[in-house]
């Protein structure tokens, strides 16, 4: 029998290895797994079993976090193929995408000076969300193709998505500052 910790996240959650994940099934299986491993189910057990429960529940939480988030799920699928993002060493990026990023960042920086900064932020946020939805749709197709060229393209898309994620965080931070 394979150990909980050595199974891949999809196996652990009894899901097919795929970019497409049914979020209801995922949540339902998550709750089932937590029902068995959560430390509260071991309140009267020995210290050892409680430690193990904490570790197992933490592992399940981590797996859930990855499977539940398209960006993390994509990265994880690539890692199962032995592909990593080399975030620190690989800095090449599609010039057109970089231009778009710069424009978005410029409009973010000038938000404070506009008449209705919150409205401007909302539209910026919408633009980011739209771009990310497109990227997720792209990843669905690429991972379904499941060949080397598709994985290479998926890696590019995921790297771009990370930029968008970071940008979204910054927009939300600014929004919080302004409220």
């Amino acid at each position: 029998m394979e150990s909980t910790f050595s199974q891949n996240y999809f196996e652990l959650f009894a899901l097919p290895v795929s970019f497409e994940v049914d979020s209801n099934t995922l949540s339902e299986h998550y709750r089932e797994l937590q029902r068995t491993s959560h430390p509260d189910k071991f309140a009267n057990a020995t210290d050892q079993e409680r430690r193990l429960a904490v570790q197992t529940a933490a592992h399940i939480n981590e797996a859930f976090r990855v499977l539940n988030n398209p960006l993390e799920r994509g990265k994880y699928l690539l890692s199962l193929q032995g592909i990593n993002l080399d975030e620190e060493t690989d800095t090449r990026m599609d010039p057109q995408f970089l231009m778009q990023q710069m424009e978005l960042r410029e409009s973010l920086e000038s938000v404070r000076d506009t008449q209705d900064p919150l409205a401007k932020l909302a539209s910026l946020l919408q633009e980011i969300e739209n771009t990310m939805s497109d990227m997720i749709a792209e990843l669905s197709v690429l991972f379904a193709n499941a060949n080397d060229e598709a994985y290479k393209q998926a890696r590019d898309t995921i790297r771009k998505m990370q930029f968008m994620h970071k940008l979204r965080d910054e927009v939300e931070e600014l929004e919080e500052d302004l409220i």
Binding site: M1, E2, S3, T4, L12, F13, A14, H29, E32, L33, R35, T36, S37, T46, Q48, E49, L52, A53, T56
Partner: peptide
Amino acid sequence: FAARRMNVSINKAL
């Protein structure tokens, strides 16, 4: 033994 027991129950869950 504890680790095996945990595996069994996790596997049983689903």
